[in-house]
Write a protein that binds this DNA or RNA. Structure first.
Length: 442
RNA sequence: GUGGUAGUAGCUCAGUUGGUUAGAGCAUCGGAUUGUGGUUCCGAGGGUCGCCGGUUCAAGUCCGGUUUACCACCCCA
C-alpha cells in the first residue's frame, strides 16, 4: 500500500467548511473593492523569476518557489501580486483612464518556514491606485483597506491602522546629511529597534551617524512618540524645516478625507512604521490588531518608482495587500465568523417508484430555477428520509407520497416550525417560492 | 537556516513502575423506524500508537535518529 501523502508544509486543503470561510473572505473583499470603484484583474500564478528579482533584488530568491521549467526558463510562483500588476498597467498605461483603480484576489507562494499567521501558500487581497500623485489616492486606498476590515465586523476597538510617511523620514535623514543608501540603512535599523536591544541599535547606527548617534536616537524617540496629526504638526514645526511644510499640507489633506469619511478613529499616526521595502516612497501604513498582538493584517503604501524600475514609463502608484491567514485567525478569535455553509432550500422525500418519478420532475424544475434541492439518492423509509431532510439543513421538505399524488397535490413542511401545507402540483413552484420567503406557521 | 515543545481513531484526549487482543467521548455509518426530523436505545467501521533503528523475555511507554506540526528567532515584498 502506498504511504499516505500529506499536503506539503505550509499548504492547506480546503474541505467545505474551510472553503466556505475562504470564499466568505473573498466575497467581502470583492464587495468592498467594487463598492469603492475598483475593478478586478488577475494574472498568472507562475512568472519569470526576473520579474521578482528586478523588483526586490537577487536575495529574494531564497524566499521564492522558483525553478527551471522544461524550456530552461527561470521561473517562480508569485510571492505577491504587485509586480504582475505593475507590468500589466505599465504596458498599457497610455490607454488606461486615470486614476487606475484595480484589485485582485490571488494565491501567492513564499518558500519560508511556516508559523502562526504565515504559510507557504496564502491568498492576498491586493488593491492599487495608479496614475495619481496626490494624497487623495492614498486616502482612497486607506478607506478601502479600513472598509474591507469593517465589513467583517471589525471595529476600531479591534484593529488600528498605523500611518507613517517615508517622505518625512527621508527628508529628516537627508537633513542629517545622509545620502539615500545610508538613509535606507538607518531606516532598517529604526524598523528593528523595538525588537533588539538598545546597545546593538546604537552600535549599528554609529557606523552611519558616528557622533550624531545619540542625538539621532533622541529625535527618533520623539518622532515615535507622535501619535496624532496634531502631535505631528508640532513635531515638524519644531524641526524648523521649511521643506516639510508642503508635506504637512498633504498630511492634512489625507487626514481630512479620512476624518470626513468617519475613518479617523481607525487610524493613528505612527512613524515607527517603516516597512521593509526599499521601494516605498510616501505614505505607508500597516493594520494591526488593536492589542498589538499578531502579525500585520494588511500593509501598503506609495511606491512611485516601481513601474519605472520595471522598464515602463514612470507612473505614480499606491497600494496595499491583506492576507487571508491572519485575518481568518483574528475573526475566529473574536467570534466574528458567521455560519458559512450555504443552507439548502428544499429536501425532497418520496414514497415508491411512481412517486420518485414525480419527485424527480419537481426536483429538476426547481433546480432549473436556481432553487437548491437535494433528495435521498437511495430510497429509504419515510422516517429515515425525514431524518436525512433534517440533517441536510433544508428549510423546506417536499413530500411526494402515494396519498398526495393520488390527488395530484404536493405537501410541504417547514423544517423549522413543523408547519405543513398542501397544494395542487401545478402550483408547486409558486408555493415553494412563497414558503421559502415566508415560512409556514404551525 | 537556528532553537524550544509536541505527535495515540476524522476531532478532543485517557492509557499506571515497560506486562494479555490499545480505550473513551464526540463525529461517521447501520439498525430499532416502509407516512413525518433534532431526543433515546442497540450495533458497526475506523489505529503500522508519526517513521526508522536500539535496549529488553516483553516497548504506545525507555534510548538514539528522523519527519511533521506548533511556538520563538532570521526574514517579511
Amino acid at each position: 500500500m502506498a504511504s499516505k501523502i500529506q499536503t506539503l508544509p505550509g499548504f492547506r486543503d480546503f474541505p467545505p467548511q474551510a472553503c466556505a470561510l475562504r470564499n466568505y473572505l473573498f466575497r467581502k473583499w470583492r464587495a468592498a473593492a467594487i463598492a469603492h470603484g475598483f475593478q478586478e484583474y488577475d494574472g498568472p500564478v507562475l512568472e519569470s523569476l526576473e520579474l521578482f528579482t528586478e523588483k526586490s533584488g537577487p536575495e529574494i530568491v531564497t524566499q521564492l518557489f522558483n525553478f527551471e521549467d522544461k524550456g530552461g526558463r527561470q521561473v517562480s510562483l508569485r510571492p505577491e501580486l504587485t509586480p504582475t500588476l505593475a507590468r500589466m498597467v505599465g504596458a498599457n498605461a497610455g490607454s488606461l483612464k486615470r486614476p487606475i483603480k484595480w484589485f485582485s484576489i490571488g494565491e501567492c507562494f513564499r518558500f519560508e518556514k511556516q508559523q502562526k499567521g504565515r504559510k507557504r501558500s496564502f491568498y492576498q487581497f491586493n488593491a492599487d491606485i495608479l496614475g495619481e500623485a496626490g494624497p487623495g489616492a492614498d486616502a482612497e486606498l486607506i478607506a478601502l483597506c479600513i472598509q474591507s476590515m469593517r465589513s467583517f465586523g471589525l471595529g476600531p476597538e479591534h484593529v488600528v491602522l498605523r500611518l507613517s510617511d517615508r517622505t518625512l523620514w527621508m527628508a529628516f535623514l537627508a537633513a542629517l546629511g545622509l545620502d539615500e543608501e545610508a538613509s535606507i540603512k538607518a531606516l532598517s535599523i529604526v524598523d528593528k529597534m523595538e525588537r533588539v536591544d538598545a546597545d546593538y541599535t546604537r552600535q549599528q547606527l554609529s557606523h552611519i551617524l558616528g557622533e550624531g548617534t545619540e542625538s539621532f536616537l533622541a529625535r527618533v524617540a520623539a518622532m515615535k512618540a507622535v501619535s496624532s496629526i496634531e502631535g505631528l504638526e508640532a513635531f515638524v514645526s519644531g524641526l524648523g524645516m521649511e521643506a516639510l511644510s508642503e508635506r504637512m499640507a498633504q498630511w492634512r489633506e489625507l487626514w481630512g478625507i479620512l476624518d470626513a469619511m468617519g475613518l479617523a478613529e481607525f487610524c493613528r499616526v505612527d512613524l515607527g512604521i517603516v516597512r521593509g521595502l526599499a521601494y516605498y516612497t510616501g505614505f505607508v501604513f500597516e493594520v494591526f490588531e488593536r492589542s498589538g498582538e499578531g502579525r500585520a493584517l494588511a500593509g501598503g503604501g506609495r511606491y512611485d518608482r516601481l513601474v519605472e524600475k520595471l522598464g515602463y514609463a514612470p507612473l505614480h502608484a499606491t497600494g496595499f495587500a491583506a492576507g487571508d491567514v491572519t485575518l481568518a485567525d483574528l475573526l475566529e478569535s473574536k467570534g466574528l465568523l458567521p455560519s458559512l455553509l450555504p443552507a439548502l432550500d428544499c429536501y425532497v422525500v418520496y414514497g415508491g417508484e411512481a412517486e420518485k418519478a414525480e419527485a424527480m420532475r419537481a426536483v429538476a424544475t426547481l433546480r432549473s430555477l436556481g432553487i437548491s434541492v437535494d433528495y435521498p439518492v437511495k430510497a429509504a423509509g419515510f422516517g429515515k428520509m425525514f431524518k436525512q431532510a433534517d440533517l441536510s439543513g433544508a428549510r423546506l421538505c417536499l413530500i411526494f407520497g402515494g396519498e398526495e399524488l393520488a390527488e395530484r397535490r404536493f405537501k410541504m413542511r417547514d423544517m423549522a416550525s413543523g408547519g405543513e401545507v398542501t397544494g395542487p402540483l401545478c402550483d408547486l413552484v409558486e408555493g415553494v417560492k412563497l414558503r421559502l420567503a415566508h415560512g409556514i406557521e404551525k
